[in-house]
Amino acid sequence: MKKNITVATLAFTAPALIVISIFLLYPVLSGFYYSLTSWNGLDRTVEFIGLRNYRELLSDREVSVSLRNTVVFTATTTVVQNLIALVLALILDGRFRTRGLVKTMFFVPVLMSSIVVGYTWSFLLHPLFGLVNKGLSGIGLTFLALDWLGNPRIALFSVAGMSIWRWVGYSMVIYLAALQSVPEVLYESADIDGASPLRKTMSITLPLIAPAFTINILITLIGAMKEFDMIYVTTGGGPGYATQTLAVLLYNQAFQANRMGYGAAIAVVLFMIILTVSMVQLRILRQREVRL
């Protein structure tokens, strides 16, 4: 097939190109531009200040705290969510009566908005009114009845827990799909060779579902690094700076402190970080995939 660009091909792609340009390309590029200005989000004039925002970023204590929180949050959600999802998928891959129902139940949180999930969980976790601590105290685990969102040492993990609760069904479904595509004959042949169930999992199942790992880890990683709504609804980045991630910081700078330019600079840095981490991660995981 010849690759000559005709009027018709151009005309056919034009609608998509126009939409993408207006709603994606233009905002993204203008974001880069605003990161080089001191715009406050209100004025009609915009002052160009070169790389000053980026230089300020390097010495901003809030940025380093937020970066650390982002890393902790991302690592926690990515690892825990994928582990739980994998275990759930392995269990649900078996045959039992309520399988469809259980699968649906784990998937339901995915369909809820993070605002709803966040509000509901912050009520459940409240130290005075919440069900969780009442339940824990009721069964004698009073020492576990913590101030889940008010204690700066655990607040970030509490929010990570909510995020995992919400998204684990999504990862599970992807693992499940991969599991069901592993050919039955391989297991049969392993059975003939006398392989133990553990051996079958390690040598057949896991290598063959490696592409699911790649996509799942990538999705969780990117999602966690950008996570904003859940944190904003439950703690607003607090108490103090305890759950302030880069996404929350950029919002606070751009919209609360009226520093749109600085906020845009943080957004650009966050974008760069996500891009780099995803590329590296993709390359490493791709090498481990096996093909039949």
Binding site: G150, P152, G237, G238, P239, G240, Y241, A242, N252, N258
Partner: peptide, 18 residues
């Protein structure tokens, strides 16, 4: 503008012992 935001975060941080 901006000063109040740092104050507000600060109150929480002091309460949290951070």
């Amino acid at each position: 503008s901006g000063v109040q935001d740092v104050f507000l975060k600060g109150y929480q941080a002091v309460f949290a012992g951070e």
